[in-house]
Computed example of a mutant assay.
Amino acid sequence: MSADLDTVFSALADPTRRAILSMLLEDDMAVSDVADPFDMSLAAISKHLRVLTAAGLIEQERRGRVTWCKLQPDALRSASIWMQSFGQFEAVELDAFERFLRSELLELGEGPARP
């Protein structure tokens, strides 16, 4: 599972690939349509699509002379489960944390006291 997570998070680390996934949320798209909004070559977009395909985030299908891209949302399941495991921790109460930091700074003589 760790290798799968690494591959998914590596694919998601790039803003272009995240934008492509957002576009594919709407509908399946031809590779040329995926490339249109980006200021890069079709070859560069194809590399991004290969990374997303290798991570299992999209599927590419040839229909005649056109290659179509389709989102595979189930591929995000393991990443989602992993991230949800951090939800078991309670959120930090920011006001209390701010008071703590203020008191620490006062003890160090590094700031004025505030109410």
Rank of each mutant, 00 (worst) to 15 (best):
M1K: 09
S2P: 00
A3G: 04
L5A: 04
L5K: 03
T7R: 15
V8F: 02
F9I: 03
S10C: 08
A11E: 00
A11N: 09
P15K: 12
T16I: 15
T16F: 08
R18N: 07
I20T: 06
I20G: 01
I20A: 10
M23F: 01
L25Q: 03
L25Y: 02
L25K: 06
E26L: 14
D27N: 11
D27Q: 13
D28G: 07
M29T: 00
A30C: 08
S32W: 03
D33W: 01
D33S: 09
A35N: 11
F38L: 02
D39L: 06
M40Y: 06
A44V: 02
A44Y: 02
A44R: 13
A44G: 10
I45H: 01
R50S: 12
A54C: 01
A54H: 02
A54N: 08
A54I: 00
A55R: 06
L57P: 04
Q60M: 12
R62C: 10
G64R: 07
G64E: 07
C69L: 08
C69P: 03
K70E: 04
Q72E: 12
Q72H: 06
Q72R: 14
Q72G: 06
R77D: 10
A79G: 14
W82H: 12
S85Q: 15
F86V: 04
F86T: 05
G87Q: 12
V92S: 14
E93M: 08
A96I: 06
E98N: 04
E98K: 09
R99V: 06
F100A: 15
F100C: 14
L101F: 09
L101I: 14
R102S: 13
L105C: 07
E110P: 00
E110H: 07
A113S: 10
P115H: 12
